[in-house]
């Protein structure tokens, strides 16, 4: 790990001000992604700005929905009664992620900004268009068994966000509150926060330089209350998703009134499937409907040499998640 200086910022203005003067500095909250990557020499910031004292805290009911401060920890949020009651899928996405130790450390903002687990990105000895733009992508013809099949490009097939929380947030229309270096706040739906790789896989989000995540707000909805997050892994716990599904249904009299679907583990970004939702809405809550939705969700899949299994796996994961919610 490189040497660096350390500053504990007392306010957002101070934190963003430091990054204005020192654009290569990095914010640190839980540190679980940042320090891990610094130990692998993938990041070498000359200064760390500790943002844990910033007042981006609290979990509270607002007129827009449940508002969660970006500095809250995964463990506290995952077991919070308001989240468990109103957004079971979001709660599950947090508690099925990482380990208890990491969940005690990792902040919500940091989770949303976690980086890909693509082995080529994480090994500085390899070319990688995301890490060194223009250097190439060995994953396309290499070890891609855990990489993405939706939204990928000829430059990058990484699942840029490998985690769980943002998948559930994408399903339920969560909105991020961001604060820039001028102290100005803006709201960005999480479905518009991540960028597809295209020809610029190094650009992963719409965050401006030095901009901070302040909070995430999830609008209350019937389909969010009746929801689940199903995660399929190579082992039963403490692993990234090969495929996952965050789904919510509002079923009345056997007919689906509204549906929300997002997939994890298979997309270049958390993969909201409006195609699947369209197939589900207005239809009977039966396995035939769920199968049709799963087919629609994976229609654009572009599997490579080793991740073709993900097409069927993601379809079956989605069908089972929908069955679980419909039967609930």
């Amino acid at each position: 790990m490189n040497d660096f200086s350390y500053t504990q910022a007392a306010t957002a203005k101070e934190a963003t001000g430091i990054l204005k003067d020192q654009p290569t500095a990095a914010y640190i909250a839980g540190g679980t992604t940042l320090l891990d990557m610094m130990k692998a020499n993938l990041l070498e910031p000359p200064q760390l700005v500790d943002i844990n004292s910033l007042p981006f805290k609290g979990i509270e009911q607002t007129k827009d929905g449940l508002r969660i401060g970006a500095m809250e920890r995964m463990s506290a949020v995952g077991e919070h009664p308001l989240l468990v009651q109103q957004f079971p899928a979001v709660s599950q996405s947090l508690l099925l992620a990482a380990s208890p130790q990491l969940r005690n450390m990792a902040s919500i903002g940091g989770n949303i900004l976690q980086r890909t687990r693509c082995g080529y990105f994480r090994d500085a000895a390899f070319p990688c268009n995301k890490r060194v733009p223009g250097s190439g992508c060995p994953a396309i013809a290499g070890d891609n068994h855990n990489l993405a099949i939706l939204g990928v490009s000829e430059s990058c097939i990484a699942n840029s966000y490998p985690g769980d929380l943002s998948v559930a947030l994408a399903a339920f229309d969560a909105v991020l509150t961001l604060e820039n270096q001028k102290g100005k706040q803006r709201r960005v739906p999480i479905t518009e926060f991540y960028l597809l790789p295209g020809k610029t896989p190094q650009k992963e989000t719409v965050l401006e330089p030095g901009e901070l995540i302040v909070a995430v707000t999830i609008p209350t909805a019937t389909h969010a209350q009746r929801s689940t997050y199903l995660k399929v892994r190579e082992r039963s716990s403490y692993a990234y998703a090969l495929a996952s599904a965050a789904v919510g249904l509002d079923v009345q009299g056997g007919t689906i009134r509204s549906a929300r679907v997002a997939l994890g583990g298979v997309g270049a970004q958390p993969w909201r499937s409006r195609e699947a939702e369209k197939v589900l809405t207005g239809q009977p809550a039966t396995e035939a409907t769920f199968r049709a939705a799963a087919t629609a969700a994976l229609r654009e899949a572009q599997p490579r040499s080793e991740n073709g299994y993900k097409v069927e796996l993601a379809q079956n994961t989605l069908v089972r998640a929908l069955q679980q919610v419909a039967g609930a």
């Binding site: 003067d21 290569t24 020499n41 650009k203």
Partner: peptide
């Protein structure tokens, strides 16, 4: 290490770390 890994943009690096010194 390219600057784009540290911040999400191509923000220019200052010529020195004057604030720190």
């Amino acid at each position: 290490m390219p600057a784009d890994l540290v911040t999400p943009t191509d923000a220019p690096q200052p010529e020195d770390n004057s604030r720190r010194s």
